[in-house]
Amino acid sequence: MYIPDWEPLNVALRRLVAIGLSEDDAKADLCNVIADEQVDIRVLVGGDDFFAGRTVKRRQVIHPVRLKPSDFDWEESRPVAKWNCGDRSLDWDSRPIKLLELRTSDLEDLFPQSTTAKLESQPIANRPRMAGASIEPKFREWRERRGDDIPTEAEDIAYMKQFGVGRDAVRTLRLRFPRRQRGQKRSG
């Protein structure tokens, strides 16, 4: 069986869950290995400028120094915010990322037990939706973990999306929790 050189972020997540890590721990580990540059990455640039549709690798991508699970849309295998991309002959700019992939061999070196793990057949994105009564407590737990660092709407949506909670439901939930004032900068 052929094993691709690169795998999307959501496949890497399933790889770590398959070896027994909790989903939260697996996400944290992936954030750390990306931030610490322990795994080679490549991205498919989104947007509509001349760089859109190009695939660029590590030296052409600048990601935040610190990454946390809410920085990613795990279903779509991409960062929520734009990352700087460019190359020596073209301008560097903050661009949307359509797809983030990790080098498979780097993951296997970092997590050797994952080479033989059978990936869960049902992708995380297709898991059943969270029961209605569980949605608000899960959102409250997420917000409490964030402390004074109130997430953006996009971060709230990305986090709850993994539980099958849609954008409209998250927007309704946000009305019951503290929000940053319009134009207020993020803390930290």
Rank of each mutant, 00 (worst) to 15 (best):
R127L: 05
F139M: 10
E144K: 15
G183W: 11
L173G: 12
S121G: 05
D24Y: 10
G188M: 11
L110E: 12
W83L: 08
D5Q: 08
K138S: 15
V80F: 06
I19N: 04
I157F: 05
Q60P: 11
L102S: 04
G183E: 10
A52M: 05
A125T: 11
R95V: 00
I135N: 03
R15N: 07
W6R: 14
L173Q: 07
T116M: 01
R88W: 01
E76H: 13
A158Y: 09
D149E: 15
R167N: 11
V11D: 05
K57L: 09
G46S: 05
C85L: 04
D156A: 14
R129I: 12
E144I: 08
W6Y: 15
E108C: 03
I124S: 11
D109P: 00
G183L: 13
L100V: 06
L13V: 14
K118C: 06
K82R: 14
S22T: 15
Y159Q: 04
R140C: 12
R186I: 15
L90C: 07
P79I: 03
D24C: 04
N84W: 10
N32H: 06
G86I: 00
D93K: 11
L21W: 03
V11G: 01
R146S: 12
W142M: 15
W83Q: 14
D156E: 14
R174C: 07
R42I: 04
E75T: 03
P96D: 07
P79W: 04
E37Y: 09
E144P: 00
D24G: 01
R78P: 02
E76T: 12
Q113S: 09
D48C: 07
P8D: 10
Q113W: 02
E37Q: 15
G132W: 00
Q181D: 14
Q38F: 05
A81E: 09
N32P: 01
W6F: 02
Q184C: 03
K118T: 15
A117Y: 02
V56Y: 06
K68M: 14
I3G: 01
E108M: 05
R145Q: 11
P64V: 13
G47R: 01
V65K: 09
A81Y: 06
D5L: 03
A28I: 07
Q162A: 11
L9A: 06
A26K: 00
G147I: 08
R58P: 00
S121L: 10
F51T: 09
R182V: 12
Q60S: 15
S114P: 02
K185P: 01
R54C: 00
K57S: 10
C31Q: 05
D40A: 06
A158D: 08
V65Q: 13
F111C: 06
R14G: 04
D24I: 06
F163A: 07
E141K: 13
L67D: 07
